[in-house]
């Protein structure tokens, strides 16, 4: 009995030692040098592997940061400026500062505003619905409401409002990774500057039809009347293809454009309630000048 145990233990030990030796030499032979800073940078990153930076996961981003030696065009939207300055510290270089951004859904075609013209009886997938036809309402540019953006979001930051049938973004949770922007077949979602106190003004419409056609399909469609363009003192609003667009970098959040819109297509978020009589003074001045213009305006000419 004892001998059996002895032999067993002995054999296993020998096998173990032999394997260890083999492994050691193999590891030595096939060792790949890796910059230790890659690991450090990776630890400094959020580790969400969301791909919002444009790389396949945090490690790939860390490699890119280390290999490039500078941080221009490299930005982790999830970690934001704090995270990037941490990365910059490790690498001993300067980090770019970017304004935090957040996703906004540029469609306000709720069931009430935009009557259904047909009943979609296919799989619940915007991609499939969009490749099949223009959508279950009269508006070919509007939200399909199947929630591909909700599925795409890794952070539970976007959800379907069951009453309106439109997705809504939770500003607190949104990290501007851009997954929903890519998922939306109608390119309705835009990453927009978060703004002071999360205040945002934007045109919640992507309808490029002529005014009459747009109006017919949706009560809150932008009809391209250019009233807001005239009202804006900062040249922040441009009209192209019968559609207004507010440049978040030029916009001073003066709130003058919203009341003039005949179709209420301009949405103000997180502002205090408007006084009944409009004052001439801008409500809030921007707190700091904008350094890097970041426009997520999808190329409307390509659509």
């Amino acid at each position: 009995m004892t001998t059996i145990i002895l032999y067993t233990v002995l054999t296993l030990s020998i096998i173990g030692v032999l394997s260890a030796i083999v492994l050691y030499f193999v590891a030595q032979k096939f060792k790949v040098y890796e910059d230790p800073r890659i690991d450090q940078v990776e630890t400094a990153l959020p580790g969400a592997n969301c791909g919002g930076c444009g790389f396949a996961g945090c490690r790939a981003f860390a490699e890119a940061c280390v290999n490039k030696g500078e941080l221009t065009d490299l930005f982790c939207p999830v970690g934001g400026n704090d995270c990037m300055s941490g990365v910059a510290n490790i690498l001993g270089i300067e980090a770019e500062k970017k304004d935090p951004r957040v996703a906004v859904v540029r469609c306000n075609g709720t069931c009430e505003h935009r009557p259904k013209t047909n009943f979609f009886d296919g799989p619940v997938s915007c991609a499939i619905a969009a490749s099949l036809y223009s959508g279950d309402t009269g508006c070919q540019y509007g939200c399909l409401g199947c929630g591909d953006c909700v599925v795409a979001c890794d952070f539970d930051a976007i959800y379907m409002n069951q009453v309106t049938g439109l997705p809504e973004v939770d500003d607190e949770k949104c990290v501007a990774c851009g997954a929903c922007v890519k998922a939306c077949p109608k390119t309705l979602i835009e990453l927009r500057k978060k703004g002071p106190k999360d205040r945002k003004i934007y045109v919640a419409c992507r309808n490029q039809d002529k005014g009459g056609v747009a109006r017919k399909s949706c009560a809150v469609a932008c009809i391209g009347c250019s009233k807001c363009e005239k009202e804006c003192k900062y040249d922040a609003i441009t009209i192209a293809n019968n559609l207004a667009f507010i440049d978040a970098d030029k916009c001073k959040l003066c709130r003058k454009c919203a009341p003039v819109c005949p179709t209420n297509a301009i949405i103000e978020l997180n502002f205090p309630p408007r006084k009944v009589v409009l004052t001439e003074q801008p409500v809030s001045a921007p707190e700091k000048p904008i350094e890097v213009p970041v426009s997520a305006e999808p190329k409307s000419s390509a659509i």
């Binding site: 013209t117 047909n118 009943f119 979609f120 009886d121 296919g122 279950d136």
Partner: peptide, 10 residues
């Protein structure tokens, strides 16, 4: 339109 037609892929 009172009645909505169904649309589905083939």
């Amino acid at each position: 339109m009172s009645k909505l037609f169904t649309i589905s892929p083939s």
